[in-house]
């Protein structure tokens, strides 16, 4: 990764003396209370190195929010593999069900993650799937939209949770779940084109239209930042084809549209944008993106 905007690339274990002033803030005149520094992803407390007690365990660039109220620091990078960190929204595949939990696949070729039944909230009243009666009957291979709850190196498996009804199983067959109920916060609808007619078409489909695309970590970041990084791509595609999507940070994106042909178009645009790493172009990929969308979706 090249360091952008003059940011320095941090390697695991590098001492970070620049964090020390945040750890022991000098009592200023207006604010005497000590503040706690929040550690984001990629940073850990290292008691064995008292001079620089915070060490990075990932490579990337250091981001520090040195606001007086809420100081925070984290390392950001775009690795090739997904490393779970708490609160990440993810799309997982159900492998099997045991007496206490759902066993799911977070990323391929890694040990499975778990969703304990008591972490699976099925409605707004906070009912969990812990009781046999309320447990959703999910078929093998179904996709669950969940959040990462606990990640710990001494824990056998990553623990996930389904914190409310807007999470849970995503539609895989026709008409099993009303997809629009899921699209409240995280699923993003088409921005401009045919917002109303598009949704009607999506509701009335009689084909199996949702698809799950596997994408790179860099692409995940772009799709999640729908209003900033992802805007050129998403608005270009949405101007041609109406679609809905749910992005899982584990490199999976659920796409639904009015027909299979439309979903394939969206998936191809995403895939080729990802494979071509178009966001790295000097013009932000605008020229290549226009060509791609024209090629895939027609004029």
């Amino acid at each position: 990764m090249s360091s952008q905007d003059g940011l320095e690339v941090i390697l695991p274990g590098d001492p970070l003396p620049q964090l020390n002033p945040l750890l022991n803030p000098e009592p200023s005149s207006e604010d005497m209370k000590p503040r706690t520094l929040r550690l984001g992803q990629g940073l850990a407390l290292s008691p064995s190195t008292p001079i620089t007690p915070i060490l990075p365990y990932r490579f990337g660039t250091l981001h520090v929010t040195s606001s007086v109220k809420k100081p925070a620091a984290s390392i950001t990078s775009t690795p090739r593999h997904y490393h779970p960190s708490p609160n990440d929204p993810v799309l997982v595949t159900l492998l099997r069900v045991t007496a206490e939990q759902f066993i799911v696949q977070l990323t391929p070729y890694t040990p499975p993650a778990i969703i304990p039944f008591e972490n699976y909230i099925i409605n707004n009243a906070g009912t969990t799937a812990a009781a046999r009666k309320s447990r959703p009957n999910l078929p093998h291979g179904s996709t669950i939209y969940a959040r990462v709850a606990v990640v710990h190196k001494h824990l056998e498996a990553v623990e996930l949770s389904v914190p409310g009804p807007e999470y849970g199983e995503v539609v895989s067959q026709k008409n099993t779940v009303n997809a629009s109920s899921k699209s409240s916060s995280s699923a993003k609808k088409d921005t401009s084109a045919a917002a109303s007619s598009g949704n009607a078409a999506i509701a009335n489909r009689n084909e199996v239209t949702p698809y799950i695309l596997t994408i790179s970590q860099a692409m995940t970041k772009i799709l999640i930042a729908e209003d900033t990084l992802g805007k050129p791509l998403l608005s270009a595609v949405a101007s041609k084809v109406p679609f809905e999507m749910i992005v899982g940070k584990n490199g999976r994106v659920w796409i639904d549209g009015s027909s299979q042909r439309d979903v394939v178009k969206v998936a191809r645009c995403f895939k080729e944008y990802d494979d071509g790493e178009m966001w790295d172009d000097p013009d932000g990929g605008a020229a290549r993106l226009r060509e791609l969308v024209g090629k895939v979706c027609g004029r």
Binding site: P139, G141, V170, S172, Q173, E207, I212, W254, Q260, V264
Partner: peptide, 16 residues
């Protein structure tokens, strides 16, 4: 093991 293919992908690919 080979990664598990989700039901969503499976039905979509076969229907398509």
């Amino acid at each position: 093991k080979e990664p598990e293919i989700s039901l969503t992908e499976k039905t979509f690919v076969l229907e398509a």
